[in-house]
Write a protein that binds this DNA or RNA. Structure first.
Length: 337
DNA sequence: AACGCGGGGCT
DNA sequence: AGCCCAGCGTT
């Protein structure tokens, strides 16, 4: 993990903070390349603060939860304005995008302040160590209490940074969600769930609600200079501030071709069916039908918030993963893949 | 307290 | 193809 300090090294608060924001709801493997890209584009928190928001959003494109990127930028500006990162949990907690978990993680890892950051890994370890049978999310306060108790151990208080990171490593490599390696666990002897044979079943969770389906149609329109028609989404909400192909709203009922046609950016273009892209969001699953066309001559409606993006500049665009796939599907149908 | 918010990895 | 994973901000 490139954000980790080596033995005897001091962790860089910028690196710790950046990695912790990226790691919210996102796996280590996914974060790695983005972390390196951000350090190369924005070597310091001041450089990140000074960058235009679109550049930050474009660099974040594909990581998801785009409010994190906007808060990251605002937080960099607040930190730069006050001359550096605060070194206590309480002050960190007041910054944009920093909640109780991240405040404790940065305080502990970057500044060696006592306190246990409670993420999903730590909740899992604690639920097993103390055999907490109540299901999440109701058990969350009890799990936080258990984690805090661990942090009060004198050995933990002596090395808060090492303790926090060791706890993450334990959850990631030994006390895993499925098939935990209890035989290898340094805490196998005090672990109550291990004794009861219930480690693999914990933490229990309330069943979650079903994900509804939604449908939409998106239009890929290419002009004779290989420029693509895009538009910007509203700044807040789903995929807020990111770019997208123009298209219909997303609703529960599928769209007929005739209904969708009313939303086409050029009524007379030779539209062809390019196929469907399916994408699962947190709270619904989307089937997006792609229709593609090449329009010789100028585009009639690059107005209304829409703009043209040359195909070879697409990597600098703030295109979320869903829209990257939609573009790829449309281009393939046009024979431009 | 409940809800909105992406994407990738594993089986 | 389906299941699993999981912090912060807003309301």
């Amino acid at each position: 993990m490139p954000w980790r300090a080596g033995p005897g090294e001091r962790a860089d608060p910028y690196h710790v903070w950046l990695s912790e924001i990226m790691l919210q709801q996102t796996t280590v493997a996914t974060v790695g390349p983005y972390f390196r890209k951000f350090l190369s584009l924005f070597p310091t928190v001041a450089a990140l603060a000074a960058a235009p928001e679109e550049r930050v959003m474009a660099a974040w494109a594909g990581l998801g939860y785009y409010a994190r990127a906007r808060n990251l930028h605002r937080c960099a500006q607040a930190v730069t304005a006050r001359g550096g990162f605060p070194d206590t949990e309480e002050e960190l907690r007041t910054l944009p995008g920093i909640g109780s978990y991240t405040a404790r993680a940065v305080a502990a890892i970057a500044f060696d302040r006592p306190g246990v950051p409670v993420d999903g890994n730590v909740e899992r370890v604690c639920s097993r160590l103390f055999a907490i049978e109540a299901p999440l999310p109701a058990s969350r306060p009890r799990l936080a209490e258990a984690a805090a108790r661990l942090g009060e151990d004198p050995a933990a208080r002596a090395h808060p940074s090492d303790f926090a990171q060791a706890l993450f490593d334990l959850g990631a490599t030994i006390c895993t969600p499925r098939r935990p390696a209890c035989a290898l666990c340094p805490w196998r002897s005090p672990c109550r769930a291990r004794a009861a044979g219930t480690a693999e079943e914990l933490p229990r969770k309330l069943p979650r609600a079903a994900r509804p389906d939604r449908h939409g149609t998106a239009f890929l329109l290419l002009d004779d200079e290989n420029r693509l028609l895009l538009r910007r989404r509203p700044p807040r909400g789903l995929l807020g501030g990111m770019s997208e192909l123009p298209g219909t709203p997303w609703r529960e009922a599928p769209w007929t071709a005739e209904e969708a046609q009313a939303f086409a950016p050029a009524a007379t273009a030779p539209w062809q069916e390019a196929g469907d892209v399916r994408h699962v969001f947190t709270h619904f699953a989307l089937t997006l039908r792609i229709r593609a066309a090449r329009l010789p001559g100028g585009l009639p409606s690059a107005a209304g918030g829409a703009f043209l993006c040359p195909l070879d500049a697409l990597e600098n665009e703030a295109l979320p993963t869903l829209m990257r796939r939609a573009v790829a599907t449309g281009l393939a149908a046009l024979g431009d893949a």
